[in-house]
Write a protein that binds this DNA or RNA. Sequence first.
DNA 1: CAGTATCCCTTTTGATACTG
DNA 2: CAGTATCAAAAGGGATACTG
Lengths: 149, 149
Amino acid sequence: MEDGTSKAPGYCTGTDDDLARQWDVRADCDVRHILDRVADKWSLLVIALLDRRTMRFTELRRAVDGVSQRMLTVTLRQLERDGLVHRTVYPVVPPRVEYELTPLGMSLHEVIKSLVIWTEEHQQEISTARSAFDLRTAEEEHQLQAMAR
Amino acid sequence: MEDGTSKAPGYCTGTDDDLARQWDVRADCDVRHILDRVADKWSLLVIALLDRRTMRFTELRRAVDGVSQRMLTVTLRQLERDGLVHRTVYPVVPPRVEYELTPLGMSLHEVIKSLVIWTEEHQQEISTARSAFDLRTAEEEHQLQAMAR
DNA sequence: CAGTATCCCTTTTGATACTG
DNA sequence: CAGTATCAAAAGGGATACTG
Protein backbone atom coordinates (compact mmCIF):
# COMPACT_ATOMS: atom_id res chain seq x y z
CA MET A 1 0.00 0.00 0.00
CA GLU A 2 0.89 3.65 -0.27
CA ASP A 3 2.98 2.96 -3.30
CA GLY A 4 3.52 4.98 -6.37
CA THR A 5 2.11 8.09 -4.80
CA SER A 6 4.50 9.99 -2.67
CA LYS A 7 7.58 8.11 -3.75
CA ALA A 8 7.52 9.47 -7.26
CA PRO A 9 10.34 7.18 -8.34
CA GLY A 10 11.22 9.29 -11.28
CA TYR A 11 9.37 9.85 -14.46
CA CYS A 12 9.23 6.93 -16.78
CA THR A 13 7.60 8.28 -19.86
CA GLY A 14 9.87 9.64 -22.48
CA THR A 15 13.08 9.06 -20.65
CA ASP A 16 16.05 9.95 -22.73
CA ASP A 17 17.90 6.78 -21.86
CA ASP A 18 19.46 5.48 -25.02
CA LEU A 19 18.13 2.09 -24.04
CA ALA A 20 14.56 3.27 -23.85
CA ARG A 21 13.34 1.04 -26.64
CA GLN A 22 9.79 2.28 -26.52
CA TRP A 23 8.84 2.43 -22.88
CA ASP A 24 10.60 2.19 -19.64
CA VAL A 25 10.64 -1.19 -17.97
CA ARG A 26 12.17 -0.23 -14.66
CA ALA A 27 10.70 -2.17 -11.78
CA ASP A 28 9.85 0.91 -9.76
CA CYS A 29 8.28 2.67 -12.68
CA ASP A 30 4.84 4.23 -12.26
CA VAL A 31 3.71 2.74 -15.51
CA ARG A 32 4.50 -0.71 -14.26
CA HIS A 33 2.73 -0.15 -10.98
CA ILE A 34 -0.38 1.02 -12.75
CA LEU A 35 -0.14 -1.79 -15.25
CA ASP A 36 -0.05 -4.32 -12.45
CA ARG A 37 -3.29 -2.91 -11.13
CA VAL A 38 -4.95 -2.55 -14.45
CA ALA A 39 -3.96 -6.00 -15.61
CA ASP A 40 -5.39 -7.52 -12.47
CA LYS A 41 -7.71 -10.48 -12.78
CA TRP A 42 -10.62 -9.11 -10.78
CA SER A 43 -10.16 -5.49 -11.83
CA LEU A 44 -10.62 -6.47 -15.44
CA LEU A 45 -13.86 -8.26 -14.70
CA VAL A 46 -15.28 -5.56 -12.49
CA ILE A 47 -14.57 -2.83 -15.01
CA ALA A 48 -16.10 -4.88 -17.77
CA LEU A 49 -19.27 -5.42 -15.75
CA LEU A 50 -19.60 -1.82 -14.60
CA ASP A 51 -19.39 -0.63 -18.16
CA ARG A 52 -22.99 -1.62 -18.66
CA ARG A 53 -24.47 0.03 -15.64
CA THR A 54 -24.18 1.00 -11.99
CA MET A 55 -24.15 -2.01 -9.71
CA ARG A 56 -24.47 -2.74 -6.03
CA PHE A 57 -21.95 -4.69 -4.03
CA THR A 58 -23.80 -7.96 -3.72
CA GLU A 59 -24.88 -7.74 -7.30
CA LEU A 60 -21.26 -7.56 -8.39
CA ARG A 61 -20.38 -10.37 -6.04
CA ARG A 62 -22.85 -12.63 -7.75
CA ALA A 63 -21.88 -11.50 -11.23
CA VAL A 64 -18.16 -12.06 -10.84
CA ASP A 65 -17.98 -15.80 -10.60
CA GLY A 66 -15.52 -17.04 -8.03
CA VAL A 67 -14.71 -13.81 -6.27
CA SER A 68 -14.75 -13.77 -2.48
CA GLN A 69 -16.28 -10.94 -0.53
CA ARG A 70 -12.87 -9.95 0.67
CA MET A 71 -11.29 -9.79 -2.77
CA LEU A 72 -14.19 -7.88 -4.22
CA THR A 73 -13.90 -5.31 -1.45
CA VAL A 74 -10.17 -5.01 -1.93
CA THR A 75 -10.51 -4.71 -5.69
CA LEU A 76 -13.22 -2.08 -5.49
CA ARG A 77 -11.20 -0.02 -3.03
CA GLN A 78 -8.18 -0.08 -5.30
CA LEU A 79 -10.27 0.92 -8.29
CA GLU A 80 -11.81 3.71 -6.27
CA ARG A 81 -8.42 4.88 -5.11
CA ASP A 82 -7.17 4.95 -8.68
CA GLY A 83 -10.13 7.05 -9.71
CA LEU A 84 -11.53 4.40 -12.01
CA VAL A 85 -14.68 3.65 -10.07
CA HIS A 86 -16.97 5.90 -8.10
CA ARG A 87 -18.59 4.68 -4.90
CA THR A 88 -21.85 6.11 -3.65
CA VAL A 89 -23.14 5.32 -0.17
CA TYR A 90 -26.82 5.92 0.47
CA PRO A 91 -27.44 6.57 4.17
CA VAL A 92 -30.29 4.13 4.56
CA VAL A 93 -30.79 0.91 6.44
CA PRO A 94 -29.97 -1.59 5.22
CA PRO A 95 -27.01 0.13 3.58
CA ARG A 96 -27.06 0.68 -0.13
CA VAL A 97 -23.79 1.20 -1.95
CA GLU A 98 -23.52 1.66 -5.66
CA TYR A 99 -20.50 1.46 -7.90
CA GLU A 100 -20.07 3.03 -11.29
CA LEU A 101 -17.26 3.79 -13.69
CA THR A 102 -15.78 7.24 -13.73
CA PRO A 103 -14.92 8.81 -17.09
CA LEU A 104 -11.37 7.61 -16.52
CA GLY A 105 -12.69 4.12 -15.88
CA MET A 106 -14.74 4.26 -19.04
CA SER A 107 -11.75 5.18 -21.11
CA LEU A 108 -9.85 2.28 -19.63
CA HIS A 109 -12.71 0.00 -20.47
CA GLU A 110 -12.27 0.76 -24.13
CA VAL A 111 -8.74 -0.57 -23.97
CA ILE A 112 -9.68 -3.58 -21.90
CA LYS A 113 -12.43 -4.40 -24.33
CA SER A 114 -9.95 -4.66 -27.15
CA LEU A 115 -7.89 -7.03 -25.05
CA VAL A 116 -10.90 -9.21 -24.36
CA ILE A 117 -11.90 -9.16 -28.00
CA TRP A 118 -8.40 -10.19 -29.04
CA THR A 119 -8.56 -13.05 -26.59
CA GLU A 120 -11.90 -14.22 -27.88
CA GLU A 121 -10.78 -14.01 -31.46
CA HIS A 122 -7.58 -15.94 -30.90
CA GLN A 123 -8.58 -18.41 -28.25
CA GLN A 124 -8.76 -21.21 -30.78
CA GLU A 125 -5.26 -20.51 -32.06
CA ILE A 126 -3.91 -20.52 -28.55
CA SER A 127 -5.64 -23.76 -27.72
CA THR A 128 -4.17 -25.36 -30.80
CA ALA A 129 -0.71 -24.05 -30.00
CA ARG A 130 -0.97 -25.44 -26.50
CA SER A 131 -1.96 -28.88 -27.71
CA ALA A 132 0.88 -28.92 -30.20
CA PHE A 133 3.36 -27.82 -27.54
CA ASP A 134 2.17 -30.41 -25.06
CA LEU A 135 2.38 -33.10 -27.71
CA ARG A 136 5.93 -32.13 -28.61
CA THR A 137 6.89 -32.06 -24.95
CA ALA A 138 5.40 -35.46 -24.34
CA GLU A 139 7.23 -36.88 -27.33
CA GLU A 140 10.55 -35.55 -26.19
CA GLU A 141 10.03 -37.04 -22.78
CA HIS A 142 9.25 -40.32 -24.43
CA GLN A 143 12.47 -40.13 -26.42
CA LEU A 144 14.47 -39.55 -23.28
CA GLN A 145 12.92 -42.51 -21.56
CA ALA A 146 13.65 -44.68 -24.56
CA MET A 147 17.31 -43.64 -24.48
CA ALA A 148 17.53 -44.47 -20.81
CA ARG A 149 16.64 -48.06 -21.54
CA MET B 1 -0.58 -26.85 -15.35
CA GLU B 2 -2.28 -28.63 -18.18
CA ASP B 3 -5.22 -26.36 -17.85
CA GLY B 4 -7.50 -25.05 -20.49
CA THR B 5 -6.46 -27.63 -22.96
CA SER B 6 -8.07 -30.97 -22.55
CA LYS B 7 -10.70 -29.85 -20.10
CA ALA B 8 -12.51 -27.68 -22.59
CA PRO B 9 -14.82 -26.36 -19.89
CA GLY B 10 -17.44 -25.29 -22.30
CA TYR B 11 -17.43 -22.52 -24.82
CA CYS B 12 -17.59 -19.10 -23.39
CA THR B 13 -17.90 -16.84 -26.38
CA GLY B 14 -21.35 -15.99 -27.46
CA THR B 15 -23.19 -17.99 -24.89
CA ASP B 16 -26.89 -17.45 -25.12
CA ASP B 17 -27.26 -16.91 -21.39
CA ASP B 18 -29.61 -14.06 -20.90
CA LEU B 19 -27.16 -12.74 -18.35
CA ALA B 20 -24.30 -12.67 -20.82
CA ARG B 21 -23.87 -8.92 -20.63
CA GLN B 22 -21.08 -8.79 -23.11
CA TRP B 23 -18.74 -11.61 -22.28
CA ASP B 24 -18.76 -14.60 -20.09
CA VAL B 25 -17.22 -14.18 -16.68
CA ARG B 26 -17.32 -17.79 -15.53
CA ALA B 27 -14.28 -18.73 -13.50
CA ASP B 28 -13.45 -21.76 -15.62
CA CYS B 29 -13.88 -19.92 -18.87
CA ASP B 30 -11.18 -20.24 -21.54
CA VAL B 31 -11.21 -16.53 -22.08
CA ARG B 32 -10.42 -15.92 -18.47
CA HIS B 33 -7.63 -18.45 -18.46
CA ILE B 34 -6.05 -16.82 -21.47
CA LEU B 35 -6.63 -13.37 -20.06
CA ASP B 36 -4.83 -14.32 -16.87
CA ARG B 37 -1.85 -15.29 -18.93
CA VAL B 38 -1.95 -12.38 -21.29
CA ALA B 39 -2.46 -9.84 -18.55
CA ASP B 40 0.52 -11.16 -16.68
CA LYS B 41 3.13 -8.75 -15.41
CA TRP B 42 6.15 -10.39 -16.99
CA SER B 43 4.39 -11.52 -20.14
CA LEU B 44 3.47 -7.96 -20.96
CA LEU B 45 7.04 -6.79 -20.58
CA VAL B 46 8.55 -9.64 -22.56
CA ILE B 47 6.16 -9.21 -25.44
CA ALA B 48 6.77 -5.49 -25.49
CA LEU B 49 10.52 -6.01 -25.64
CA LEU B 50 10.44 -8.73 -28.25
CA ASP B 51 8.41 -6.54 -30.54
CA ARG B 52 11.55 -4.66 -31.44
CA ARG B 53 13.73 -7.61 -32.25
CA THR B 54 14.83 -11.12 -31.52
CA MET B 55 16.55 -11.43 -28.17
CA ARG B 56 18.61 -13.94 -26.28
CA PHE B 57 17.80 -15.21 -22.83
CA THR B 58 20.34 -13.26 -20.85
CA GLU B 59 19.65 -10.20 -22.88
CA LEU B 60 16.01 -10.36 -21.89
CA ARG B 61 16.96 -11.01 -18.30
CA ARG B 62 18.92 -7.80 -18.20
CA ALA B 63 16.29 -5.84 -20.07
CA VAL B 64 13.39 -6.83 -17.85
CA ASP B 65 14.29 -5.13 -14.64
CA GLY B 66 13.59 -7.18 -11.56
CA VAL B 67 12.82 -10.51 -13.16
CA SER B 68 14.49 -13.57 -11.71
CA GLN B 69 15.99 -16.23 -13.93
CA ARG B 70 13.32 -18.63 -12.84
CA MET B 71 10.41 -16.33 -13.60
CA LEU B 72 11.80 -15.41 -16.98
CA THR B 73 12.13 -19.06 -17.87
CA VAL B 74 8.61 -19.81 -16.71
CA THR B 75 7.18 -16.83 -18.55
CA LEU B 76 8.96 -17.67 -21.78
CA ARG B 77 7.79 -21.28 -21.62
CA GLN B 78 4.19 -20.18 -21.16
CA LEU B 79 4.45 -17.73 -24.03
CA GLU B 80 5.98 -20.42 -26.19
CA ARG B 81 3.27 -22.88 -25.24
CA ASP B 82 0.61 -20.35 -26.14
CA GLY B 83 2.19 -19.83 -29.52
CA LEU B 84 3.05 -16.20 -28.86
CA VAL B 85 6.80 -16.58 -28.85
CA HIS B 86 9.10 -18.75 -30.91
CA ARG B 87 12.20 -20.28 -29.36
CA THR B 88 15.21 -21.20 -31.44
CA VAL B 89 18.05 -23.25 -30.00
CA TYR B 90 21.36 -23.13 -31.82
CA PRO B 91 23.34 -26.30 -31.18
CA VAL B 92 26.59 -24.60 -30.28
CA VAL B 93 28.66 -24.30 -27.16
CA PRO B 94 28.02 -22.21 -25.25
CA PRO B 95 24.32 -22.56 -25.98
CA ARG B 96 22.60 -19.83 -27.89
CA VAL B 97 18.84 -19.49 -27.62
CA GLU B 98 16.86 -16.80 -29.31
CA TYR B 99 13.33 -15.66 -28.72
CA GLU B 100 11.09 -13.84 -31.13
CA LEU B 101 7.42 -13.03 -31.47
CA THR B 102 5.26 -15.20 -33.67
CA PRO B 103 2.64 -13.53 -35.86
CA LEU B 104 0.14 -14.28 -33.11
CA GLY B 105 2.42 -12.63 -30.59
CA MET B 106 2.79 -9.61 -32.83
CA SER B 107 -0.95 -9.20 -33.09
CA LEU B 108 -1.20 -9.37 -29.31
CA HIS B 109 1.48 -6.75 -29.04
CA GLU B 110 -0.70 -4.29 -30.87
CA VAL B 111 -3.32 -4.63 -28.16
CA ILE B 112 -0.83 -4.53 -25.34
CA LYS B 113 0.68 -1.42 -26.80
CA SER B 114 -2.62 0.39 -26.54
CA LEU B 115 -2.83 -0.65 -22.90
CA VAL B 116 0.63 0.69 -22.20
CA ILE B 117 -0.12 3.90 -24.03
CA TRP B 118 -3.32 4.36 -22.06
CA THR B 119 -1.37 3.89 -18.87
CA GLU B 120 1.24 6.41 -19.87
CA GLU B 121 -1.36 8.93 -20.90
CA HIS B 122 -3.34 8.64 -17.71
CA GLN B 123 -0.67 8.03 -15.14
CA GLN B 124 -0.92 11.59 -13.89
CA GLU B 125 -4.67 11.37 -13.41
CA ILE B 126 -4.29 8.16 -11.47
CA SER B 127 -1.59 9.63 -9.29
CA THR B 128 -3.79 12.58 -8.51
CA ALA B 129 -6.76 10.37 -7.74
CA ARG B 130 -4.65 8.30 -5.39
CA SER B 131 -3.41 11.33 -3.50
CA ALA B 132 -6.94 12.66 -3.15
CA PHE B 133 -8.19 9.29 -1.94
CA ASP B 134 -5.41 8.91 0.59
CA LEU B 135 -6.04 12.41 1.86
CA ARG B 136 -9.75 11.75 2.28
CA THR B 137 -9.01 8.49 4.05
CA ALA B 138 -6.54 10.13 6.40
CA GLU B 139 -9.03 12.86 7.21
CA GLU B 140 -11.76 10.39 8.04
CA GLU B 141 -9.43 8.53 10.32
CA HIS B 142 -8.59 11.77 12.02
CA GLN B 143 -12.27 12.49 12.55
CA LEU B 144 -12.77 9.13 14.15
CA GLN B 145 -9.90 9.62 16.51
CA ALA B 146 -11.25 13.01 17.49
CA MET B 147 -14.63 11.47 18.32
CA ALA B 148 -13.01 8.81 20.42
CA ARG B 149 -11.59 11.44 22.70
C1' DC C 1 -26.60 -5.03 3.01
C1' DA C 2 -22.02 -4.06 2.91
C1' DG C 3 -18.66 -4.30 4.78
C1' DT C 4 -14.18 -5.16 8.50
C1' DA C 5 -11.09 -8.27 11.08
C1' DT C 6 -8.78 -12.50 11.72
C1' DC C 7 -6.84 -16.80 10.88
C1' DC C 8 -4.75 -19.93 7.89
C1' DC C 9 -3.68 -22.29 3.81
C1' DT C 10 -1.98 -22.29 -0.96
C1' DT C 11 0.24 -20.40 -4.72
C1' DT C 12 3.77 -17.49 -6.39
C1' DT C 13 8.15 -15.89 -6.31
C1' DG C 14 13.05 -15.21 -5.19
C1' DA C 15 17.59 -16.96 -3.84
C1' DT C 16 20.78 -20.39 -4.29
C1' DA C 17 23.15 -24.22 -6.09
C1' DC C 18 23.99 -27.33 -9.79
C1' DT C 19 24.44 -28.96 -15.07
C1' DG C 20 24.81 -29.90 -20.31
C1' DC D 1 24.96 -19.44 -21.82
C1' DA D 2 20.73 -21.14 -20.69
C1' DG D 3 18.76 -23.40 -18.23
C1' DT D 4 16.78 -27.11 -14.07
C1' DA D 5 16.06 -28.31 -9.15
C1' DT D 6 15.23 -27.23 -4.57
C1' DC D 7 13.92 -24.73 -0.68
C1' DA D 8 12.38 -20.82 1.98
C1' DA D 9 9.90 -16.42 2.12
C1' DA D 10 6.07 -13.76 0.92
C1' DA D 11 2.07 -12.57 -1.19
C1' DG D 12 -2.56 -13.83 -2.52
C1' DG D 13 -6.71 -15.38 -1.43
C1' DG D 14 -10.59 -18.18 1.09
C1' DA D 15 -13.51 -19.20 5.23
C1' DT D 16 -15.43 -17.56 9.09
C1' DA D 17 -17.11 -14.47 12.54
C1' DC D 18 -18.50 -10.04 13.77
C1' DT D 19 -20.65 -4.98 13.07
C1' DG D 20 -23.10 -0.38 11.81
